[in-house]
Design a protein around this nucleic acid. Structure first.
Lengths: 155, 155
DNA sequence: CACGATTAGATCGTATACGATATAACTCGA
DNA sequence: TCGAGTTATATCGTATACGATCTAATCGTG
């Protein structure tokens, strides 16, 4: 989607598309994190999932999915991999066998103490705009999700 | 990566991670575009590739890849799909048979005239901040790519 | 001009995303 | 309480991303 324009014919250039800016910035983050995460045997998404898990231990797959905006079809394989790597545990909730509770292992907790992304803060070159951009993009995401919920129209 | 903090122990919450904001905003864009793009039989990435192609017809795969920050391993299958769907043509350059020139078909050009993302501008809820966010995120991307080039260090 | 080095695309294997569907566990009303 | 409906997770098929590698075409240098 390109930026708003008063004129009838907006500039249909890639560089004016906000969606492309986000898309390509996401690629860039993935690449920036790769060499760092390779040292601990994690992928970008796996790392993000660990951070979400750190906020609250013993979450169900759906709860984690709500934080991450992902569902079980995507999350299950990722969590299985993280379990296999030894950073998390997955166990059925005895009180409701449908649910799977996910928790950090000591290895997982130790990993998160390292603050692996610290070195990238400077690499963004945003300086004091950092929190502003972070908030704008989060707001953008929330608005998009709310305003385009499947089958819904805005009032 | 979380936002900068003066304190020794920054808030390691998901919501403070710029990379997560970008990651999830990208998911949100993909979902927002889906119902629109479904009507013309395109995926999100395929659509972005078409827009990049519209900037200049007859580009090589690498040239397109530079605009999109993608390489042939990702781009080739996408372009083959777009050819199959009838929106582009792919042909070896007679002057250098290694290169593949990609061009829009009339159907592809017609599609791009429709301005499919227009309706999402409002859904971002950014209002007049739209171009500001677009530029900040693009800058962020460029900085990340420049400052973390494989094996390189900043001076 | 021959031949090793380089270049452009393509292919393959792995890891996400995600719609559609499957499966097992729980809920709730007749 | 029993069976229909619901819920939580998992599975499957398709489409990206991307490192590693392959192949064919071109280039460069002796």
């Amino acid at each position: 989607m390109s930026r708003p324009a008063k004129s009838a014919k907006p500039d249909r250039k890639l560089s004016n598309f906000l969606c492309f800016a986000i898309y390509s910035a996401n690629l860039a983050f993935g690449r920036a994190y790769k060499p760092i995460l390779d040292t601990v045997g994690l992928t970008y998404t796996q790392y993000i999932a660990l951070v979400a898990l750190a906020e609250e231990d013993g979450q169900t797959v759906s709860a984690l999915g709500e934080k991450l905006f992902l569902e079980s079809n995507t999350l299950t394989p990722i969590l299985k991999k993280l379990e296999q790597t030894g950073y998390i545990r997955r166990e059925r909730d005895p009180a409701d066998e449908r649910q799977v509770r996910v928790s950090l292992t000591p290895a997982g907790r130790k990993l998160l103490d390292k603050d692996l992304g610290e070195s990238l803060i400077e690499a963004t070159g945003l300086g004091e705009d950092f929190p502003v951009v972070q908030k704008s993009v989060s707001r953008l995401r929330d608005n998009l999700l709310r305003n385009t919920k499947p089958g819904e129209k805005k009032p």
